[in-house]
Amino acid sequence: MHARTPEQTAFADSIDAFCRARSGTRAQRDALTQNGTEAHNPALYVQMAELGWLGVGISSKYGGSDGGMSDICLFAERIAYGLAPVGGYVTTVVAAGPYAKFGTEAQREKILGGITRGRVEAISISEPGAGSDAAAITCRATRTPGGFIINGQKTWCSNAHIADHLLLVARTNTSSSRHEGLTMFCVPTGTAGVEIRGIPTLNGKDVNDVYFTDCFLPESAVVGAVDQAWPQLMAGLNSERLILAATMLGRGRRAFDDTVAYVKERKQFGRPIGSFQALKHRIADLATELDCCELLLYRVAAMADEAPERMLPREASMAKLKATETAKRVALEGVQMMGGYGYATEYDMESHLRATVISTVYGGTSEIQRDIIGKTFGL
């Protein structure tokens, strides 16, 4: 395990105790999630806000605690391990970055202050024709007196249905290159002309299509500089990848611990199945991989804390790639070692599998992460 400060150790212990008390049993989690159909429980989230946890990476000026990336990752890891149904946190903390770096003072007070009080935020980038190729965005923001008119469709927008605002990326200029002419906007989800429709998935209600039809946004909705969203997005990708890596490290560790508990208890041929070499060696390999993920993640998080303006494309992509692929492998191996029970909804393993499989797709697929890493070597 990586070294933690005494304060971080106490923080992690507090999160673990909270999760054991409020979401530690299957019955508690079912009650909080409408039997697993909802990924986010607002009341539980507000309780975390009241403890000051949601502002861990936010300036004290806006109600936060001035923590760094290592602290954010620690929180994301422990709530994922504790299976706390607060799925709104990841998009919220990722959205906080652009507002903190590029937003106006009014935007920071509204968005960052709201986050510390338990508000959920979301980011709207992907489109039907713009996924991994984010520069292919066509959702259009056309200038009009006093602001912009938005028309177009976004998709795979996580948490749009529970968010107060969408951090929208739209095209404001078609005469420049693909990576230019994009602008960020702060869009209240109740704005006229915004329609949010859920997309049914294996993981329940978490992603959405968002349609913009003659949606008017005032000039004050612009986040940062007009036509400069691409470099603003690039500045925040390190944070997103590290937070996703931390979340999957937590989920992977939970899947691992659930597997170990099962193979110690389950007996076949007169002894616990974990005592058979075939399973014992799998457990050893998974434990080693998870420790590698943890060391990589927190090393990169420390680098980000030491120099917040560094891009770290290679290191952040490595952390995201390693953590998500490892978590998926742990869950798949867990299903295999638990046999039919790993497939049954009676146990958590099948939900671990659903949660980890998609992690190698969102936030930049594993293939995209490998491509980014390769490019840093001049390939």
Rank of each mutant, 00 (worst) to 15 (best):
E7C: 10
E7Y: 14
D13P: 10
S14E: 15
A17N: 07
C19S: 04
S23L: 01
R26C: 14
R26K: 08
A27C: 11
Q28F: 01
Q28M: 05
A31V: 05
T33S: 04
P42D: 09
P42H: 03
Y45I: 01
A49F: 02
G55T: 11
G68T: 05
M69K: 02
I72H: 00
C73W: 02
A76E: 04
I79H: 01
P85V: 06
V90I: 09
V90R: 14
G97T: 10
E109Y: 02
E109C: 14
I111G: 08
I115Q: 04
E121Q: 14
E121A: 14
E121G: 10
E121S: 12
A122R: 09
S124V: 10
S124T: 08
E127M: 04
G131H: 11
R140I: 08
G146I: 09
N151A: 07
K154C: 02
T155R: 10
W156H: 08
S158N: 08
S158F: 04
A163W: 06
A170W: 09
S176D: 06
T183R: 14
F185T: 11
A192V: 13
G193T: 02
R197K: 13
I199F: 11
I199G: 07
T201E: 09
L202C: 01
N208T: 03
N208V: 04
Y211V: 12
C215S: 03
E219R: 07
G224V: 08
A225R: 12
A229I: 01
M234H: 04
M234V: 11
G236H: 00
N238R: 04
R241E: 02
I243F: 02
A246Y: 00
A255C: 08
T259Y: 01
V263L: 10
R266K: 01
K267D: 08
K267L: 13
P272H: 01
Q277G: 09
A278M: 12
L279W: 02
L279P: 05
D285C: 14
D291W: 11
C292D: 15
L295F: 15
L295A: 13
R299N: 12
T324Q: 01
K328T: 15
G334T: 09
Y343N: 14
E350D: 11
A355E: 14
T360E: 00
G363F: 00
S366E: 00
E367M: 09
E367T: 15
Q369P: 00
I373W: 04
K375M: 12
L379C: 13
